[in-house]
Computed example of a mutant assay.
Amino acid sequence: MAAPLVDADYRKEIGMARRDLRALIYSKQCAPIMLCLGWHNAGTYDAKMKTGGSNGSIRSGVELKHSANAGLEIAVGFCKEVKSKHPKITYADLYHLACIVAVEVTGGPSIDFVLGRKDSLESPEEGCLPDARQGAKHLRDVFYRMGLSDKDIVALSGGHTLGNAHKERSRFESLPWTTDPLKFDNSYFV
């Protein structure tokens, strides 16, 4: 699919989708899974090959079934509700926007949103996302593939301030990462 025409109408549609996402995330208390959707959609990026990344491919049946994406069909379903009201918006922009709104709704910083991502259904192979059970070398290999540094890895880990571990999704015990899994703050690092 070609990149969307980013004109005044598209920008207006993004603004309306942002409001709908804000209401949905607040009412369903689904900020953690929306943050996870945005990260897992973007986390397949390969800096050398210039492939993967925030392109909406996570909605494909193949990629959604990757073990790291267990449970994300919930977030994809929530986004379908918003997409049905705003069909002009690409899935790539919608998933990225949902992630940003999730951070904002939970008290995190306001994040600039650069729109105009194009959709793809080309899924990467299984194993592109980090698996904490494989240790530090694996985590570095995955993040370095994305072009990130050790400092970036630490900063991104702070996203775990939102949400709980769900044994059926991550295979980690069902515990909150922090005392308030719906508040974006520095407590994960503490």
Rank of each mutant, 00 (worst) to 15 (best):
Glu125Asn: 05
Asp119Ile: 00
Asp46Asn: 15
Asn41Phe: 01
Leu72Lys: 06
Ala23Ile: 12
Lys48His: 13
Lys50Pro: 03
Asp141Trp: 03
Val76Cys: 09
Ile74Ser: 06
Gly77Cys: 07
Ile33Ala: 00
Gln29Phe: 05
Glu73Tyr: 07
Ile111Val: 14
Phe78Cys: 05
Gln29Met: 13
Cys128Gln: 09
Gly38Pro: 00
Val82Tyr: 01
Arg59Trp: 01
Ser57Pro: 00
Ser57Asp: 05
Gly127Ala: 09
Val142Met: 13
Glu81Trp: 00
Ile100Cys: 02
Arg140Asp: 04
Ala47Gln: 14
Leu97Met: 08
Asp112His: 09
Ala75Tyr: 02
Gly108Thr: 07
Lys137Gly: 12
Lys50Phe: 06
Met34Cys: 09
Tyr45Met: 06
Ile33Tyr: 01
Gly77Trp: 05
Tyr26Asn: 14
Pro87Tyr: 09
Asn69Trp: 01
Arg133Trp: 02
Ala42Asn: 11
Lys28Ser: 14
Tyr144Lys: 15
Lys28Gln: 14
Cys30Arg: 01
Ile33Cys: 00
Ser67Asn: 08
Lys137Asp: 12
Ile100Trp: 06
Pro124Gln: 05
Glu125Lys: 15
Lys50Thr: 11
Glu63Met: 15
Glu104Asp: 10
Pro87Cys: 09
Val101Trp: 00
Glu125Asp: 06
Asp150Lys: 11
Gly61His: 08
Leu97His: 04
Val142Phe: 01
